[in-house]
Simulated scan of single mutants.
Amino acid sequence: MIAHRPPTISAWRPAVPGIAEVFHAHFTDHAYPAHTHDTWDLMILDDGAVDFGLDRRRHAAADLSAVLLLPPGVRHDGRTVTAAGFRKRVLYLDTTVLPERLAGRAVDAPILADPLLRHRIHRLHTAVGHPGEALEAESRLFLVAERLRFHLQAFRRRAPGREAHRLAIGLRELLDARVRAGLPLREAAALLHSHPTHLIRCFTQAYGLPPHAYLTGKRIELARRLLLSGQRPADVATSVGFHDQAHLNRHFTRHVGTTPARYARGITSRMSDHGVIIPDIGQRSSSV
């Protein structure tokens, strides 16, 4: 007889409009009773297989490249299939992301064989797992929602048109004015009279990177200026818009190739060796 193993669970509510809960779990012998949610249940499997019933029909899911979408208000259950159980990551999305009227198609086909969608959901989970990545998480949520609407036959993607350059410049100006405070994508879209997903595509087409990556780069640039002026990394982190020093460290190392503390120590060492003040970053070689 196999001994009972308690589940491993992590759950939280991120500061991302539309996501009611994030839920990560490893179950070995759990069986969900029949129940309903007020939210959409968007699930990906990282290991194992699951058997579930949805509206009187049973389904088996074991494809790790697929996505499970269970609609709000519809009875469902779930249980493990093997002794090893399954690992899953779930996003509970409220009906501002997907309207409840689209539930019928999800009842008919709750398993979506779509590796691109699965990858986008994985990237969204990564973003919501890091405090301070609100703009990235919000952007990724809109791209996930667009793909889900494609499957639910309710949305047709609109390619950037002649207005793309104007929208991209408008969003860049808004981001430049709010480097420290940040800018919710919904607010930017309302100010520019555009849909958030369309705005992301226009910006990316014009500048070669998505809005959240552009904002992170601007914050790193500002952080370098402040470090050059002698400010402590811990103070710099929050003053330029990062959640904390660990958040700054992660992005700074990826952009600059070293941590803010080592970068600052290099500045101090050079100043003591040469008795000079390092010029502003804008005057330095682009190879720095």
Rank of each mutant, 00 (worst) to 15 (best):
A164I: 00
G241C: 02
V128L: 00
K88S: 15
F23S: 03
H151P: 04
V22T: 04
S269L: 15
H243P: 06
L191V: 08
V50R: 01
R158Q: 12
V90Q: 03
D51H: 08
R57K: 07
S269E: 14
R225Q: 11
H4V: 07
L248D: 00
D94I: 04
R157I: 14
I267Q: 13
S139C: 14
F155T: 15
D46I: 07
T126G: 12
L227I: 05
V50G: 00
T204W: 03
V107H: 10
Y214E: 09
T82W: 08
R224D: 05
C202Y: 00
A234T: 15
A60M: 09
R123H: 12
G104T: 09
P184I: 01
L152Q: 11
H24P: 00
D55C: 07
R89T: 07
R201F: 01
R89V: 00
L143S: 14
A164S: 03
S272C: 02
E187V: 11
S272V: 10
L228V: 05
G266P: 08
F150N: 08
S65F: 08
S285W: 10
W40Y: 05
G78L: 00
H243S: 12
A15H: 07
D176P: 07
R13L: 01
L209N: 11
I169F: 04
A137F: 10
Y92F: 13
V179P: 04
A127E: 01
S272K: 04
P99N: 05
I19A: 01
T126V: 14
K218A: 08
E136H: 15
D51R: 14
E21Q: 15
G275Y: 06
H130K: 11
A134S: 06
E21C: 10
D63Y: 00
G48N: 06
L91Y: 01
G18W: 11
A49D: 04
R75G: 00
M271K: 08
R224V: 10
H247S: 13
L91H: 03
F252W: 01
A62Y: 04
I267C: 06
Q283S: 10
R162Q: 06
H274R: 08
P160L: 08
